[in-house]
Simulated scan of single mutants.
Amino acid sequence: MKKIKLLKIFLPNSLEETYSKILNNPFKIGAPNGFEPIKISESYACAKFIEEVISKELIIDPFGNTEEVTSKRYIINEFTISRIRNDHILILENPSRSVRELIRKLSEILGTRFYASAIQIDIHALSEFLSNNRDSIHLKNTRALLSGVNLDKGSSATIEITSLKDAIHDARYHFKGKTFKIERARFTASSGTKKSTIEVRSTGLISVHGPDEKSLVELINMFIAEGLS
């Protein structure tokens, strides 16, 4: 399964200059963090961000003796900075739970003009885009989580809908005239006997699993790019 997190970013310098600064900040044993470059092309740059985390724990044995145990672990985030028209997107593959340290480090080496912001995905629009751009694949929306469903003047609800056909269509039908947000959704993409699954969160976190994983991720990135233009 490939999980990706998408963020819109602003680069103070060109993609080539950005990659050069990443090259000049390699990870070294004993350093708190650093980068491992992978590849650069005209439209994207790939690298790994490695963070060393040291944990200390006090262990008390049955006799009351105390010993401090130190352990190390490494958090590795592989990322791509992709240039799309006049914008740049930061794509994180299988991201850790927090990417705050990566953003802080990029800001440190690129300058204070660098910033990253979350991308909000219109899941209904994404569903239509995927259906219209893959003639050979049958897309089915099996689950959708709605928030802010207005029930009356004083109450709203968070509702999860499961469907054998199209959960988003069912939501728009049963709650016609009501406002709500699709927080996340699950899709199956079938092509002959092959089946892939897509899970999308409106906050820009996407998981794809199956034989069409690569092409589906490319389509999703294309959808994001069109939304930025």
Rank of each mutant, 00 (worst) to 15 (best):
T193C: 02
K195T: 14
S196P: 11
E218S: 12
K48N: 15
G192H: 09
F49K: 00
N133G: 04
D170C: 03
E17H: 05
E213T: 12
L15C: 04
F187C: 01
L58S: 10
T66S: 13
D212I: 02
R85A: 09
D122L: 06
N132M: 04
I81P: 00
F114W: 02
D122A: 10
S156H: 10
P37D: 08
I60Q: 11
S41E: 15
I40T: 09
S190A: 12
K140G: 07
L7R: 05
F175T: 07
T158L: 05
N141Q: 09
E17Y: 05
F129W: 08
V99I: 15
P12Q: 11
F180S: 07
Y173F: 10
T179S: 14
N13M: 07
S190T: 15
R113N: 13
S191L: 04
K56M: 07
R104V: 05
E52P: 01
L7G: 01
S229G: 11
F49W: 04
L11C: 10
T179D: 13
I59K: 13
A189G: 10
S14A: 13
Y44E: 14
K39P: 04
I89E: 00
I76S: 07
R83A: 14
F114V: 04
N94S: 15
N77D: 15
K176I: 09
S55Q: 09
L228R: 04
S131C: 03
L15V: 08
N25A: 08
L92M: 12
S196Q: 12
E17K: 08
D166V: 09
Y19R: 00
K105G: 00
A45S: 15
K176H: 14
E101G: 02
C46Q: 15
I121M: 01
T142M: 08
F27G: 01
T179Q: 13
R104L: 08
N150C: 09
L102I: 10
E218L: 06
R83K: 15
I168T: 07
Y115I: 05
E128P: 01
A118I: 11
M222D: 11
